[in-house]
């Protein structure tokens, strides 16, 4: 592992100079930029970044402005990860040939994508990057919906959520399929590092980002990004909702090293019932009608089962 920026506490972290700029057009209270800031501030190295189509891309590159103070590229919906992988391959080739102008500077390669561009559309591309073993990091800003285009369901949308293509109404309780377990899928490629992070646990997040950036080979980060517009809550509650997600274990924080060594990195002192997480968001409002109450019970059972499974995996090291 290479030398990383030392961040002992939040005061020390706050001396970082942001490389992501304000006056981007993300909604007030959007968690995307909180995640991006925590990722970029975790390192002082040069960065080569990409963003796949999604909220982050359309809002940070509005003509004639850019919000990125580092090399940044956007191509298509699916190939943000491969764009960065290509840059990484070129860097390696130039390094081997001794043609780098500043060989002592070691850039980090990071691609950002939403859950639509990662779970669905860019899935094959990301899988390819992980399989080929590029030294890069892929960060998913998981807001569980295609928020950029008006809230269509993605394969990250959880059961019972009302999205515009799976709306709740008289005949339906909304989305009927469960969320895809992307971290396990990516870890199954045998990559050196895969982790789930949450912006409210900044220290855990920075630690994981630094681990991911310092390994040789690909790393995959899945970050929960509360969406005020599509999850339907007040912009000021972004961090409160994220707290509920991690404390109710709906979004457990763990890492998988080399595809098998699972570590749970955050165990809430007081586990909050899933009901509280659901009740805080407008997209689950209909679940509190009498006829759909059973779904809340199922939610709790599913979350408990996943937590038990994670603990078993951690113990068994498989």
């Amino acid at each position: 592992m290479s030398e990383m920026k030392k961040i002992k506490n939040l005061k020390e972290f706050s001396t970082s100079a942001d490389r992501f700029e304000g006056a981007n057009l993300l909604c007030p209270g959007c968690a995307h930029s909180i995640i991006v800031r925590e990722v970029l501030n975790a390192t002082n190295d040069d960065l080569i970044l990409s963003a796949s189509t999604g909220c982050l891309e359309v809002c940070t590159a509005v003509y004639p402005y850019t919000s990125w103070d580092a090399s940044w590229i956007h191509i298509g919906f699916e190939n943000g990860s491969t764009a960065v992988a290509g840059a990484e391959s070129m860097y390696k080739a130039l390094k081997t040939k001794g043609r780098l102008k500043q060989p002592d500077r070691k850039p980090k390669f990071v691609s950002f994508a939403g859950d639509g561009a990662s779970y669905d559309i860019g899935f094959q591309w990301i899988s390819g990057c992980m399989e080929r073993g590029h030294t890069m990091m892929h960060v998913v800003l998981d807001n569980e919906v295609y928020a950029n285009t008006g809230g269509q369901r993605s394969s990250s949308t959880p059961i019972g959520s009302s999205a515009t293509t799976s709306p709740a109404g008289r005949k339906s309780y909304g989305e009927k399929k469960n969320k895809k377990d992307m971290v396990s899928i990516m870890a199954s490629h045998g990559i050196p590092y895969a982790a789930q992070v949450s912006p409210n646990k900044w220290k855990d997040m920075v630690k994981k980002i630094q681990h991911g950036l310092s390994v040789e080979g690909p790393s995959f980060i899945n970050a929960i990004s509360a969406c005020t517009t599509e999850w339907k809550f007040d912009p000021k509650d972004t961090m409160a909702i994220t707290d509920l997600a991690t404390d109710s274990l709906v979004f457990p924080l763990y890492e998988i090293i080399d595809g098998h060594e699972l570590n749970i990195t955050y165990r809430p002192k007081n586990i909050v019932p899933v009901e509280e997480y659901l009740a805080a968001q407008g997209r689950f409002k209909h679940l509190f009608k009498d006829e759909y109450k059973y779904l809340i019970k199922e939610w709790q059972e599913r979350v408990d089962a996943k937590w038990a499974q994670l603990q078993r995996r951690e113990e068994a090291r498989v």
Binding site: L10, K11, E12, F13, S14, T15, D18, F20, E21, G22, A23, N24, L26, C27, P28, G29, C30, A31, H32, S33, I34, R37, E38, P199, N200, W202, T228, P235, K236, T238, M239
Partner: peptide, 26 residues
Amino acid sequence: IYCPDISIISRDKKMIGVDMDHCKGC
């Protein structure tokens, strides 16, 4: 750390103020 709009100005571990050009009032 939790400001989405890089509008909290911190220098030398001290919070100085709010950048009113970039604050969206969330």
